[in-house]
Write a protein that binds this DNA or RNA. Sequence first.
DNA 1: CCTATATTCAACACATCGGTTGATCAAGGG
DNA 2: CCCTTGATCAACCGATGTGTTGAATATAGG
Lengths: 112, 112
Amino acid sequence: MSVDDGQLDRAFAALGDPVRRAMIARLSRGPATVNELAEPFPITTQAVSRHIQVLEAAGLITRTRDGQRRPCHLVPATLEALTSWIDEYRLETERRFRRMDAVLNAMKEQEQ
Amino acid sequence: MSVDDGQLDRAFAALGDPVRRAMIARLSRGPATVNELAEPFPITTQAVSRHIQVLEAAGLITRTRDGQRRPCHLVPATLEALTSWIDEYRLETERRFRRMDAVLNAMKEQEQ
DNA sequence: CCTATATTCAACACATCGGTTGATCAAGGG
DNA sequence: CCCTTGATCAACCGATGTGTTGAATATAGG
């Protein structure tokens, strides 16, 4: 809820880039401006600005205004939507594996 | 562990495509062949075959052999690596938010 | 054997991505 | 006011992604 399929597309794809993942990691420790986020990377501020736009379009961050700065803030709810999606299928798979194990064990019992 | 950064790149990027996410959903209910996975989509089997290769390269699935079939199996451990990555930063952010709330409440106390 | 089925490989078209440079806009500070 | 700083817009480029068609490979099965 609150994230449609297109948002899932954009959010997962956004996390597929190591630069953007590093930005997420940085933002988990507090808000940061474009220049602050750009600092660790050997790329132009423009490139970073576009990475930020991608993260914003994905709903992974929001932006506020502080004079001429545009600080970025992580949105944990969107991260949570991603883990929820993944966990749904991971848990189903693990349940299935456990059922399969049970069947195999039962067959082993039978054999003896 | 067991998944390097390149794997994270590939796995997150792989989930950025709705066709591949649908395949993951399908595979959570049990193994499936290329043709079975292709059935719901209006694309060629070749295209599906390449989606499968992408999922395999990302470590999200493995493949076995059954005669001329090549069944796909979901790898829950890789899904778990993704949720672990996300949760690390989501939880850090939420902790930070709670600390901030505490400070704000303390300031409110002070005022009275 | 010969043929049908399951899957993959190869070559191509087209869109998107991630970077660049150069120009522009907006807010602050002497 | 002007000039600097923070950020973005626009145009371009090479690489990658996703689909197609057509050919190839491999196993199954009469």
